[in-house]
Design a protein around this nucleic acid. Structure first.
Lengths: 150, 150
DNA sequence: CTTGCAAATTGGAATCATTCCAACTCATTC
DNA sequence: GAATGAGTTGGAATGATTCCAATTTGCAAG
């Protein structure tokens, strides 16, 4: 399952990396492509396995490095649930996460701006938040509404 | 710094444990007392250190066990931020957490019921959430408004 | 072209929180 | 006062992540 980036995605990658003074490498391309190909919030190990199909020599350390780099330049978000392995998600739109306890799957939940606003408003004076993370835990009745969700 | 539970707290402990068929032990009393004494969201290690002042023989494994037990019977909540050590909090009222990036301190933020409602309402049909976790990350200007907050 | 350099990659070792486990303690019941 | 079972203990095991020293790579300058 070889992954190739679209023009657009490759440019996005290139630019984001450039702004923090970093370059596109074969490894980064593949790791990024893996994230875009199946937006199921893979763990590092998942990404590693998938990326290896296209680049057998790729090392786990590099996957860690790439993902850290991407997070650093805002290309992807980290998703943590309890103390489980960190998962990665290339959806940059503001959204919450729903973790299905039955399957372990993580779904993105769109976050209306007014909710974000009202959340910000409950912070007492003097508290400045850069990030808000919202995660639901429970069961979803049906199979994921959109399997390749964002 | 020996900790002793108030009548009320001890009863609370006793009852909560009883409902899941468990007993009050010296270790559990102390661990619980430590949590109530300073509600600063201590890590297991923190609790371990503090509890040892009252009970030098206490083992780390037991602290893990006690805290797990408490979480299981709803006496305390776990608080996770990123992949840092799990912290524990005896505040049962619905609340969010604010993690000060400068100090590492965690503050409770009261959660108005209507916010919880509106959050629940953004879940698509078929998603049933038992738990919602909200965490802010940022900086708080001043020293904690209420240092022994809950 | 070569040379040199800095950034990136690599594999393996190290770390750290947490879990597991088998032995031991203790209170209670028969 | 022996048996039972929950709770405790210390140490070993686990698993995700980080660290590190040794290459490799991509380029830029000569």
């Amino acid at each position: 399952m070889i992954q190739r980036l679209t023009e657009h995605d490759r440019e996005n990658l290139q630019e984001s990396l450039a702004t923090s003074g970093q370059k596109v490498t074969a490894q980064r391309e593949i790791v990024f492509a893996v994230l875009l190909a199946k937006r199921d919030h893979p763990t590092v190990e998942d990404v590693f396995q998938r990326a290896r199909e296209s680049m057998p020599g790729l090392s786990l350390a590099t996957v860690y490095n790439c993902l850290e780099t991407f997070v650093g330049c805002g290309l992807v978000r980290q998703v943590n649930h309890e103390r489980e392995s960190t998962r990665y998600c290339p959806n940059l739109a503001p959204h919450a996460h729903f973790r299905d306890e039955a399957t372990g799957h993580v779904h993105d939940i769109e976050l209306p701006p007014e909710i974000i606003q009202s959340l910000r408003s409950i912070l007492p004076a003097g508290f400045n938040s850069e990030t808000i993370e919202i995660s639901f835990r429970g069961r979803s009745q049906e199979t994921p509404p959109r399997s390749t969700s964002n």
